[in-house]
Design a protein around this nucleic acid. Structure first.
Lengths: 248, 248
DNA sequence: CGGGGGCTTGAAACTGATCAAAACGCGTGG
DNA sequence: CCACGCGTTTTGATCAGTTTCAAGCCCCCG
C-alpha cells in the first residue's frame, strides 16, 4: 500500500471518488529510502517524476546569504515537488531529515491520470494551493512574530499537519530534526532557538527529548503562537482518524 | 480589451493556443475601480468570483501580532484570489494600493472554461504555482537577509514582474505604495526602511520620488539583493515586449 | 491657513546574533 | 570496556542590527 499516506493526505483536504482512489492506488512507482542528509532532489534538477513522502521528513532548503534557509517541511503524504509537473526546474534541495522513504511517480504516468480525471486534477491543484497557503503563513510568521511565538507556531503547524495524516498520538509526534533545523526554518540563530525552546519547556507547553515532541498544553501553545489551523484547509467531516482507516 | 493584461501575463509564463486566448478574451466580467485603501476582498469572504488586476496595485495583508503583515503584492495581470476556485475562504484582505481597476470573473464562468480546456487549466495552475514560488522566495528573504538586501530584493522582484507585463520602462516603474507598506512587507520598522532606502540611494542604486522608482544600476542592485529571476519562471522565447504586443 | 499623512532625523533600549567553551549522548574502534 | 571523536545541546558574555520613542519637516489637500 505505498500510496496509502498520499490518499489519506488528499482525503483529509478533498473528496475523492472511489474510482479516483483506485487510480491513485494503482500508480506505478519506485520506492527509495534515504538516510539523514541525503537529497531526494537537488536545486537545478529537472525531475521526470514526483516524490511522495511515505515515511519520515523532508525539508526544502537553499543557501541564502550564507544561511541554509528551510522554506518547508514535508511529512508523509506530501508531494514536495508536485509543482515540477508544470515548472520543470527545482529551485531548492529536498533533504531527508532523519531516515525517510519516498515513492517516485513518473510525470509520464501522472499526467494521463490527471487528464483522465478532473477530480484528481482538482485534488492535486488544491494540494499545491494549500502548500501555497502554508508558505504565506510562514511569511507572516517570519515577518511579524517574535522568536517565542514564531517557534511555537512551527510546532503547532507540524502537530496539526501530522494529526491530519494520523501521525499525532496522545499529544506526541516524532520529530527527526535538530534545533539547528528549527533555527534555519525560523530565521533565528541556533543558540536563540535553544533558549526559546527552554522557555517553552519552562512554560510547561511542550517537551522535546530524543526526537519525540510532546505537546503538553495545546490550547496554551496555540495561544502563544497565535495559531489558527484554518489555513491548512482540512475537511471538517471526516475526522483524521476515520480518514486514515478509510485509506487503509 | 479588459483581459489584455491577464493574457499578457499568462503568455509571459506559458504558451496558449489561439483558441484559448479567444476563450480568455471573451470571458464575461464586471469591472470595478478602487481607491487607495479600499478592499477588493476581505478575510473570511467566500468569493463567487476571481479578481483580475487590470491597473494599479493590490496587496494581500492580514493583522498578525499587532502588525499589518503584507504577504504579497499583485500587479496588472495577476489574479490574487485564483485559489478561491478550490479553497473557498479568503484568509487575507486584498487591499488597493493607490487607485486600481479590477475585473471580476464569476467562478461559474471560469470553471466550465477550465473544464473545456486542459491548456487553460494548466496555465492557471501554473500561475498559482508561480505565486507559490514567490511566497517561498519571500520566506527566504525574510528568514535570511539583512535589511538592506531584503528591501533591495523586493524592488528587484517588482521590477522584474512589472517588466514581464510591460510596465517597466527606461529603468523606471510606478510604485503607488508608502515606505510603511514596504516595512509591512519586509518585516521591518518604518523607520528602518526609511534609513535602508536612503542607503540604497546613497549607493546610487535607485531613486524613489513621487511614486516613481528608478533603478539606476540594476545589476548592482540585483547583486546586493542576491536576486535571481529564475523563480518567476518567465518564458525565454517571447520577449516581454513582444508578448505585450501579441496580446494587444 | 490649518491639518494630516508621509518622510526624515536623533537617541535610547532591546531583541536576537555572535563568539567561545563546556557538557552531553552516542557510535566507532581499539 | 574504555577511549575517542563528533554532532547536538546548553550556558555565559559581549556585540550589533533593529526597534521604539519622540520630535520636526515637508507637502498636499481641504
Amino acid at each position: 500500500m505505498p500510496h496509502r499516506k498520499l490518499i489519506a493526505r488528499l482525503l483529509s483536504v478533498v473528496e475523492l471518488s472511489e474510482q479516483d482512489q483506485v487510480r491513485l492506488r494503482d500508480m506505478p512507482h519506485l520506492i527509495k529510502t534515504f538516510r539523514d542528509g541525503d537529497f531526494a532532489a537537488r536545486q537545478g534538477d529537472s525531475p521526470v517524476h514526483c516524490a511522495v513522502v511515505m515515511s519520515g521528513f523532508l525539508s526544502r532548503q537553499r543557501i541564502v546569504s550564507d544561511r541554509n534557509q528551510i522554506s518547508a517541511f514535508y511529512i508523509p503524504g506530501d508531494v514536495p515537488d508536485l509543482h515540477t509537473l508544470h515548472l520543470s526546474a527545482m529551485d531548492h534541495d529536498l533533504c531527508s531529515e532523519g531516515a525517510s522513504t519516498v515513492a517516485f511517480i513518473l510525470h509520464s504516468h501522472l499526467r494521463p491520470i490527471l487528464m483522465a480525471s478532473p477530480g484528481l486534477t482538482n485534488a492535486f491543484w488544491r494540494e499545491t494551493l494549500i502548500q501555497g497557503a502554508i508558505y504565506r503563513e510562514w511569511v507572516e510568521n517570519l515577518g511579524s512574530r517574535a522568536a517565542l511565538p514564531r517557534v511555537a507556531h512551527l510546532f503547532c503547524e507540524l502537530a496539526t499537519r501530522l494529526e491530519m495524516v494520523g501521525l499525532f498520538h496522545n499529544g506526541s509526534f516524532h520529530l527527526p530534526i535538530t534545533q539547528q533545523d528549527v533555527a534555519n526554518a525560523c530565521g533565528l540563530s541556533t543558540v536563540h532557538v535553544n533558549r526559546t525552546i527552554q522557555e517553552l519547556r519552562k512554560m510547561g507547553l511542550l517537551e522535546w527529548r530524543e526526537q519525540i515532541v510532546s505537546v503538553l498544553r495545546r490550547d496554551k501553545l496555540e495561544n502563544v503562537a497565535e495559531f489558527s489551523a484554518e489555513y491548512l484547509h482540512a475537511l471538517e467531516a471526516p475526522k483524521p482518524h476515520e480518514t486514515m482507516r478509510a485509506a487503509e
